[in-house]
Every structure is written in C-alpha cells, then in structure tokens.
Computed example of a mutant assay.
Amino acid sequence: MSIFDVFAKLEAEKAQKAAPAAGPVEWLVVGLGNPGDKYAMTRHNAGFRALDAYCAKTGQKIDRLKFKALTGEGTFGGARVLFMKPQTFMNLSGEAVREAAAFYKIPPARIVVLFDDISLDVGRLRVRPKGSAGGQNGVKSIIAQLGTDQFPRVKIGVGAKPHPDYDLADWVLSRLTPDEEKQFAPALARAAEAAEDIVRNGAAHAAQYFNGKSE
C-alpha cells in the first residue's frame, strides 16, 4: 500500500466517524411554537427555542420543510430521530406530528414534545411520560390528532400570569424580561438534554434527574 493509499484510508475512516449513523427514523423530537419573527422570542416559543439552542450547540440543522414542519434528521440519545418545529401555528401542531408519525410508523411512546408551561417558574423543567394538555393548545392538538396522551414531554417553565385577570394569550405571547432570560437560556439547553435522556434512558430516568432543577 502506497503512502497515498494510507492517507486515503485515514480520510475515509475520519469521514465515517464524523458522519451521523444513517438508518430509519426511530423517534420524533418536537419543539412547539409559532412560526415567524413576531413570535420568535415569546414565552410560547419555548419548544422552538430549546431545539434552536441544541442546534447552536451541535450544528444540527432543522431547516427542511416537510410534514407541515421544519425538520431535520440526526442522531440523538443514540437513536435516529426526526427533529420537528411545526409551522402550522400552535393550535394545529398535531397535524404535523400525526403526518410524520404515520409516515415513519412511530408510536406515541417515541414522540418527545418540548413546550412552555405557565405553572412552572421560569427556568424550571418537568419531564412527564404522559398526561393531559394542561391548557397548552399545541399539546391539546397533538393529543387530538394522535388519539392519545401517552407520549413523553418536557415542560419548560415560563412563569405564571402576573395576576388572575391577565389575558392568558397575551401572557404566553409576551417576551421574557431581561432578568428572566438569564434564567431561561440555560433551561433551554437543559430541556434538550432532558429530551435526549428520554430517548436514551426513558422518561422516568429523565424525570428523576431533571425535574424541578434550575440554574
């Protein structure tokens, strides 16, 4: 073998290690939010922002329009996943999830959903293996479209309304204060880590490690 052959072999091995393992999609990882710059930094876009934080850290791309969502395939928690940011607006998010789940034959137990939760303080996380929508319209749509609430989720705390009479829609579509953003940014990274732990080890394990924790 010549020196050129040796270098060629080394380059091929390096490229193979760098490339993510190909294969069929095994999980869906769905971040919820509303499309458009108007909503980008709002409380309701916590799910989008968690996936954006993961992409900024890893170089993962979620930029292909498919199933009424921006999507991207990657290796996550040791499995092949389809990342999704539904582009249907929040209350129709389930349409995108249902289409992708049907295409890849993904059962609800392997659909991880990341979204905002007003019952949690800003920066707090809560992992659940299943459950009701709790008033979150995107989750409500997913439950309706899948016909079940038996899918794991990562709730990202965005804080409660400042007073009972405050309009809920106005609150979730508001931006966090600068002080809240300081707590929120690290929570987005942890939310992606929690989703990855669900894929790798299950929701019970992720809940034990991530629930209630903040920086």
Rank of each mutant, 00 (worst) to 15 (best):
residue 4 F to R: 11
residue 7 F to L: 15
residue 7 F to G: 07
residue 17 K to H: 14
residue 19 A to N: 12
residue 23 G to R: 06
residue 26 E to M: 01
residue 30 V to Y: 10
residue 34 N to L: 04
residue 36 G to P: 10
residue 38 K to I: 06
residue 41 M to V: 02
residue 42 T to K: 09
residue 46 A to R: 13
residue 50 A to H: 02
residue 51 L to I: 14
residue 57 K to Y: 00
residue 59 G to V: 05
residue 61 K to Q: 15
residue 63 D to P: 07
residue 65 L to N: 07
residue 67 F to N: 05
residue 70 L to Y: 05
residue 73 E to I: 05
residue 73 E to V: 05
residue 76 F to C: 08
residue 76 F to W: 08
residue 77 G to P: 08
residue 81 V to S: 11
residue 81 V to D: 08
residue 82 L to D: 00
residue 84 M to C: 04
residue 85 K to S: 09
residue 86 P to H: 08
residue 87 Q to D: 01
residue 88 T to G: 03
residue 91 N to C: 06
residue 94 G to S: 11
residue 95 E to Y: 07
residue 96 A to I: 09
residue 98 R to W: 07
residue 106 I to A: 10
residue 111 I to C: 11
residue 112 V to Q: 14
residue 113 V to D: 13
residue 113 V to H: 10
residue 114 L to T: 02
residue 119 S to D: 15
residue 120 L to A: 12
residue 121 D to H: 09
residue 136 Q to P: 14
residue 143 I to F: 10
residue 144 A to T: 06
residue 146 L to S: 04
residue 150 Q to N: 01
residue 156 I to A: 14
residue 159 G to E: 02
residue 159 G to K: 00
residue 160 A to K: 14
residue 166 Y to G: 12
residue 167 D to H: 08
residue 173 L to M: 15
residue 173 L to Q: 04
residue 185 A to N: 05
residue 188 L to A: 05
residue 189 A to Q: 10
residue 201 N to A: 13
residue 202 G to R: 12
residue 204 A to D: 15
residue 211 N to C: 12
residue 214 S to Q: 01
